[in-house]
């Protein structure tokens, strides 16, 4: 477009046509993907529709779900959504704080702080999340520290995700070039001012999309907290009614659908946020 002569350039109308064709191609692709999703979903429903089909002397049966049970218990299971979201939000907030400290500690030149940060990350990443939840809930009471299911869950999830997220933050911090720090220092900023005014704002912007991903997977890992038996979130409710009435199939399918829809909604917002950040006035 910046060329001075018009030589070799195609007429504007032709370029426009090519561009439109390209757009059409992309639209058609997206439409076909959408239709295929619909078909896959119908197949899934069909598999659970309880049909008997005679075909060449064989009888095929699809899985029969107890729809009466579903209608009776759907509100009970849905009642766990609030708890699931509450745990996820509290845990992610705690995780962000932990991740920030761990990432900053990792940059410290003071050996004990550096060691504390790497020790924390190593210990947490070296042990199962499931164990960590139980540790807070079952092991600590032996030391006289009794925590409720929710508190144990939030502490364990927060510490666990914090350890993983610290890597994201660290990448964010190191994405801010050395020149930025030098410019701030040359202006006479203290290391603290440089961090708060120059480095962190840029690092956080870098770290927000991966943090969104972590939040989405947190909503699913929060199901592990049900193992304490005292947090009435989605998973706990599904296993409770499922076991009691021998309808685990239906109960778990319901819970799975709730998790899935929740993830789809969060992913949608996540992609909106990402698009906005990427075109923002950086």
């Amino acid at each position: 477009m910046a060329s001075i002569t018009n030589e070799g350039q195609m007429p504007a109308s032709q370029a426009e046509l090519l561009y439109q064709a390209q757009l059409r191609k992309e639209r058609v692709f997206r439409m076909h993907v959408g239709i295929s999703w619909g078909v896959l979903f119908l197949i899934l429903i069909f598999l659970f529709s309880g049909q008997h089909i005679e075909f060449g002397g064989f009888t095929f049966k699809t899985i029969n779900v107890d729809s009466e049970f579903i209608f009776k218990n759907i509100t009970f299971i849905a009642g766990g959504l609030g708890q699931t979201l509450l745990i996820s939000v509290l845990s992610i907030l705690f995780a962000i704080v932990m991740a920030l400290f761990a990432a900053l500690g990792r940059l410290s030149k003071f050996p004990p702080i550096y060691a504390l940060s790497t020790f924390y990350v190593s210990l947490i990443r070296g042990t199962p999340l499931y164990l960590q939840i139980f540790f807070f809930f079952l092991a600590l009471p032996q030391l006289g520290i009794v925590l409720s299911g929710i508190v144990s869950g939030v502490l364990a999830l927060g510490l666990n995700y914090g350890a993983y997220m610290s890597e994201t933050f660290r990448a964010g911090l190191s994405s801010v070039g050395k020149g930025q720090r030098e410019a701030a220092m040359a202006l006479g900023m203290t290391p603290g001012q440089t961090m708060m005014r120059i480095v962190l704002p840029q690092a956080l912007r870098f770290a927000i999309p991966p943090m969104g991903n972590d939040f989405i997977s947190m909503t699913k890992d929060s199901a592990l907290v049900s193992a304490t038996g005292f947090v009435h979130e989605l998973m706990w409710r599904a296993t409770k009614v499922g076991r009691a009435q021998f309808n685990s199939l239906e109960a778990l399918i319901m819970a799975a659908m709730f998790y899935w829809v929740m993830t789809l909604i969060l992913t949608y917002f996540q992609s909106k946020l990402e698009a906005r950040l990427s075109k923002g006035d950086r």
Binding site: G179, A183, A186, L187, G188, M189, R197, P201, R205, R282
Partner: peptide, 27 residues
Amino acid sequence: TGMVFQEFNLFPHMSVLENVIEGPVTV
């Protein structure tokens, strides 16, 4: 001392004016 760098090192998250007042205000 004021310093000007080869790579400019303007703060990308601040507008031009914010870049210029950052030093006097913060420091």
